[in-house]
Design a protein around this nucleic acid. Structure first.
Lengths: 302, 302
DNA sequence: ATACAATTATTGTCCGTGACAAAATATAGA
DNA sequence: TCTATATTTTGTCACGGACAATAATTGTAT
């Protein structure tokens, strides 16, 4: 019976992104995070400790080293957080995006959906994704970090968008001469929205898409690529993916795939990689992928 | 940088599903799996060891205990594998289902999709789900355990079905007097197909559905249920969900929700529970849920 | 000063082992 | 033939040391 207050060691990696091994080492070296025992005799981290760890994570992402900050008091950490957040300036955004977020905040899902569909009719699928969905998703992230909306808003919104995209992709027609692309997300990666956006755009431009969904073992991916004669395998990494594991995962898959199969990688989690490994294309923007798609394949049918 | 022959400890979980901790324990207890050092001085498991581990995994899934088989030679393991695959008798199933699976095996995804859509036109959405999708998904599971199809077939098939269901649900019209149902999957539960099937059926019968998707922290679920004034929260547990955590998760959520909000639970992972906790409805069949839906709500508008 | 190499410090992963609780299995008793 | 109780098996986690990769610092030559 989990209480509200104790997070078990086995859950800690999912909650914080730090492995249990590492946190144990921190405890040994810096005296934090300490574990507690609940009234029900369960051992784990308290909610407060979890938020403390998450703040430390943010500081590390901003350039601090563990030895400087793990071990500092909660008050001290929050002070440092305040320093770095003040540096981030308020971002302005599209009025259309703002309107959508307003509807979401008011919990008017029907309004949200119809508004999205209205925008959708006014442009191509690719434009819809790149000019409406991408900014919307970004701004939702910002709104969340400003504390204006809750995580569940984000979940529900993602699901609505995904549902719309799924429908749109289904009514897409592959064009002759364009490649077959196998889309997937690696193990431990739950975020599928980015993948779906990529699929929508590329399918809209004529590619034949096969989506395997999230959490696909590298080995299965390889076998599927073989069986379905895919020309390209496209992987998406979200911000939440353990940054240390991005490159190994890519290299691993690249190694397994035959050389004639291209490997495309994108998503905010992939951005930490500077140079792409040999035989891997790294995209920081879906638009670039469209460019390559046309450049590499359209001419083949001419 | 993984070579062809050596799999690093950090990759082992992704490759085999067993944690490094556990394999280390096996090594201590049964003398397997041993690690090797590559020419480049990298330490890890050889490819052969990996397949060995994967065979052991299959045996364990078929009821063997680790102490019986980890430690046995490769030859012995393969012999046992042969024994169990011979044991799985061919099960009879619908000819329509068989046809669909045939298409999948031939990697004819277009044929698969059009065949599904053809069947879809001949009945209501609920019937489609219960008479076509459910048997199909079951039989795919069987075919996999008979070794006839690969895991990736299953992934791709799920994704196609989900895409179809998403589209169908989107064109569903809520009926007045029926409840608002919040659908979600708990943390660590990636399987969404069952949830989607439930949503499709219940939405088809008039419920207003909000789908939060997979992997939703219990706490977020509670807040969302509040904000969106849901009458029912529906959770789905798959066979893969750690059986010892099913009941605690349910009890936890039941505790957080106001009493007037119902909690519905289903999925093969929930079947291990005999008596439902107080205030929780346990469904072993989507059909039962439809019954309750009508019984509890339809009369209210009469 | 500036670029670059060498040195030192920090950091995260993995190891081997022991402890332990949950699950599975065997055993005894009704 | 059950059911309750012991026993064994199993997987997770703690602990602290070893170590390689990475980052920071110092030294050196242009």
């Amino acid at each position: 019976m989990p209480t509200d207050y104790i997070v078990a060691p086995s859950d800690i990696e999912r909650e914080t992104g730090f492995s249990n091994d590492l946190l144990r080492k921190w405890r040994q070296r810096y005296g934090f995070p300490l574990m507690e025992t609940s009234p029900e005799n369960q051992v784990g981290y308290s909610r407060k400790t979890i938020s403390h760890i998450l703040l430390i994570k943010r500081l590390i992402e901003n350039g601090f080293r563990p030895s400087q900050i793990v071990g500092k008091s909660f008050a001290e950490i929050t002070r440092l957080i305040k320093v770095i957040t003040d540096e981030v300036s308020e971002q302005r955004c599209d009025s259309s995006t703002k309107k959508l977020i307003g509807l979401l905040k008011k919990h008017d899902l029907d309004g949200f959906k119809t508004q999205l569909k209205r925008i959708r009719t006014k442009s191509t699928l690719s434009e819809f994704v790149q000019e409406t969905i991408v900014p919307l998703v970004n701004e939702i992230g910002n709104a969340w970090s400003r504390g204006e909306i809750e995580v569940y808003h984000e979940h529900i919104c993602s699901n609505i968008i995904m549902r719309i995209l799924q429908g749109e992709i289904a009514s897409t027609k592959p064009k002759h001469g364009f490649p077959t692309i196998l889309f997937a997300t690696p193990p431990d990666e739950h975020h599928v929205l980015g993948l779906l956006m990529a699929e929508a755009v590329l399918a809209d431009h004529g590619a034949t898409s096969i989506n395997m969904g999230s959490h696909i073992p590298i080995n299965e991916l390889k076998m599927a690529a073989n069986s379905f004669k895919a020309n390209i395998v496209a992987l998406s990494f979200s911000f939440a993916y353990s940054s240390r594991r991005v490159r190994p995962t890519i290299v691993h898959l690249r190694h397994l795939l035959p050389t004639e199969v291209e490997l495309w990688v994108g998503g905010s989690g992939a951005r930490i990689i500077r140079r792409a490994p040999k035989g891997v294309r790294l995209f920081s923007d879906i638009h670039d992928a469209v460019g390559v798609l046309h450049h590499s394949y359209k001419k083949d049918i001419a």
